[in-house]
Computed example of a mutant assay.
Amino acid sequence: ADGTVERYKARLVAKGYSQVEGVDYRETFAPVAKLVTVRILLSVASLRGWHLHQLDVNNAFLNGDLDEEVFMSLPPGFGRKGENRVCQLHKSLYGLKQASRQWFIKLSTALKAAGFRQSRSDYSLFVRSRQGNFLVLLVYVDDVILAGNNLEDIENTKLFLANQFKLKDLGQLKYFLGIEVARSRHGISLSQRKYALEILDDAGFLGVKPSRFPVEQNLSLTQFDGKLLDDASAYRRMVGRLIYLTITRPDLTYAVHVLSQFMDKPRQPHLEAAHKVLKYIKRTPGQGILLPSTGSLQLRAFCDADWARCKDTRRSITGYCILLGQAPVSWRTKKQTTVSRSSAEAEYRSMATTCCEVT
């Protein structure tokens, strides 16, 4: 965390780009936890007073078993001069196209053998309920969250997984996917303060004068206003990082939505609007969301539409926010797919999108 070198690592990586579909691999898809699922799980854990623990699997992809016959050339220096020997892989390696899928299959098989049921709404969520003990396990590649009402059950599950895979017990949940998790008697707060400061440092905005709001009122950006940027990569990198920041910052969602429309050919006004967002972040880098420890498990949804907002396409904007009790768990701003002929039509499309998210 302080920038010093903790250890040096070397890894043997296969040249997955040379694999042939249908010969060396077939399916490659592997699910990861939806961020909405992460927020809902933490919200329920806060309301129910569940224990929250975290695990990290070491070299996760090396655990997967290969179904195909895959051969790999030896790394330089391992074979004698003039030899053309190859090695056959029995287990997956980093770099193989099917590595992530084979790891998830191995993990889910082990969890099902331990009595867990896989959720149908999010395949990375596993649930087990027996003798009054309720345990939820959420997987994001090699990061695992354990939530349950019985600490002994959580520890037994850790021991079971430790016998199956080499893993690191990180104790109580503090930091997950760049999200800082802090728990108090009021609830669980989620923020990305460290990540927000990294964005400001990367853009050279750590010493800038803060702004009280992320976007100017009635700001209207179009595709052809202003001069084209000489180097669009810095703008794309900045907006891409801001998109990830909206995981815990609903207040940035609309501004980032507007900026992300101009990734192809960004212009000077678009960059100035992005700088305005950075100035706002400078004012509140630790801003996040609170998942209260009191309240109900009732879902509430709010939605709105901005009719014909986009000047380039005249498409309307849908915006919604969904709360579980008092905790915000899902929010989005998105341009509608078709042009609405009236504000009423735009509002109905917005409600339809929100209902799809709720169900």
Rank of each mutant, 00 (worst) to 15 (best):
L89D: 08
F116C: 03
R309T: 15
P328Y: 12
N149G: 04
L297P: 00
P210D: 02
M351G: 07
F126W: 02
L35C: 01
Y175T: 05
M351R: 03
R332M: 12
T359I: 14
K335V: 07
Y195C: 07
S124K: 00
E68L: 03
L221D: 06
A327P: 10
S119T: 05
W331I: 11
K209V: 08
G95V: 13
L252P: 00
G295P: 08
E27Y: 10
L125E: 07
T28F: 09
S293I: 05
G288W: 08
K265L: 11
S296L: 09
L297C: 04
S129G: 04
F262L: 10
V57G: 00
P210L: 03
L252E: 07
P210N: 06
N133A: 13
A308D: 10
M351F: 13
K81F: 08
L146V: 04
E152Q: 13
S233N: 06
D65T: 11
H90C: 09
Q118P: 04
P76R: 03
I188C: 01
A99P: 02
L190F: 09
M263G: 07
P31D: 10
G148N: 11
L107P: 01
L107E: 03
L252T: 03
L41D: 02
E357D: 14
S330Y: 07
W331K: 05
R117W: 09
R249S: 02
L89G: 03
R185I: 03
S46V: 06
K9Q: 15
A234R: 07
G115W: 04
W103K: 03
P210Y: 05
Q287W: 08
I281N: 01
R341C: 14
R283L: 14
L62T: 05
N218K: 11
S92C: 05
G95Y: 13
L221E: 06
A14Y: 06
G95W: 11
I322C: 13
P266S: 05
Y25R: 10
V277L: 06
L177Y: 10
K282T: 01
R85V: 09
I322N: 04
I317D: 00
D143K: 01
F134L: 14
Y17H: 15
S73T: 07
Q192E: 15
V215S: 10
G226S: 10
E180A: 10
V44F: 03
S220Y: 02
S18R: 14
K112F: 02
Q326S: 15
W50V: 00
P250V: 01
V258G: 01
R183P: 01
K279Y: 06
L137D: 00
E272A: 10
R26T: 15
R341W: 12
S92N: 10
H90M: 12
E69R: 08
R11F: 12
Y348N: 13
P292W: 07
L190N: 14
S342G: 13
E21F: 14
L259W: 01
R332V: 08
